[in-house]
Nucleic acid binder design. Sequence first.
DNA 1: GGCCAGGCTAGCA
DNA 2: TGCTAGCATGGC
Length: 300
Amino acid sequence: MVTCVEPKRPYDFRQMLQRPLSRPSKGMVINREDYSLTKAVRLASKVLPVTVSAVDQADGAILRYEYPDGLTPDEQEALNARIGHMFSTSVDLGGFYAVMLNNPRWSGIIRRFYGVRPLHDDNLFECLIKVIVGQQMTVRFAATLIGRLMDLVGDAVTWHGARIPAFPSPEQVAALSYEQLTSLSFSRRKAEYVIDMARRISEGRLDLDALWAMSDEMVIDQLTLLRGIGRWTAECFLLFGMGRKDVMPAADIGVQNGIQLLFNRTVRPGEAEIRELAQDWRPWRSYATYYLWQSLIDFA
DNA sequence: GGCCAGGCTAGCA
DNA sequence: TGCTAGCATGGC
């Protein structure tokens, strides 16, 4: 089956793929020939391969996604919503650009990444685990660890003759032992964070979907009560998982490097100063963050 | 070999 | 409340 949607303009799918291209990961297959992205999406209990690409039309890009036949109407609707969320199709960037172009420092970066939107994770569990694994690690090594986790557990689907691995479910991760992860070069502590979190979720002691109804600050308050989640992790979860628009992980080393570069500073700015600066970027701080990260790809 | 990486916890004043 | 050592590993 094929479905096409027309994202809000401007929409630059090709540039949006630059981040995943610069840090290849096991769960996301990108074809450099036609700039398509294939991923196994968890839909309720199903694992569904989906290939997404952009068709360039004279009046703007059309997002096209292909998936297996036989979905129920409910599943179809859920998939449409999921794709819209993952690829930020309905966000109106006009507000963001209006705010940022008040600051001449941003005009170059905005022009350069015009039409770029965040790519969000398929589901909240996947996002949370990825962010935890990514704490205090190079992005590349974090992707290696996630890949090893997916080799160890997780379903895979066959799609057009290729094997597409899926990120494991909470139950699958919950069934692991700490030793299984430390043998993959997870630190002992991180193995505990990841498995304990999965157990908390699979046993019903943590309901990630309940977070959808909460404000950003409430989500941060709730999640940082849990061992292994600090403010940075909660903020990245809001940004990459929930798609919240006004989050600034000011303690992030990448954000700090990006601002140092953009503002031409000799010293890397600290968290407090960045939170102060970012007041001007409300209510689009997530997008400012994302563009800062995007600007660092060349230096990776 | 040293330093850094899209930090967090526990322990201490 | 605020500060810091220790964690653990790969990559440059």
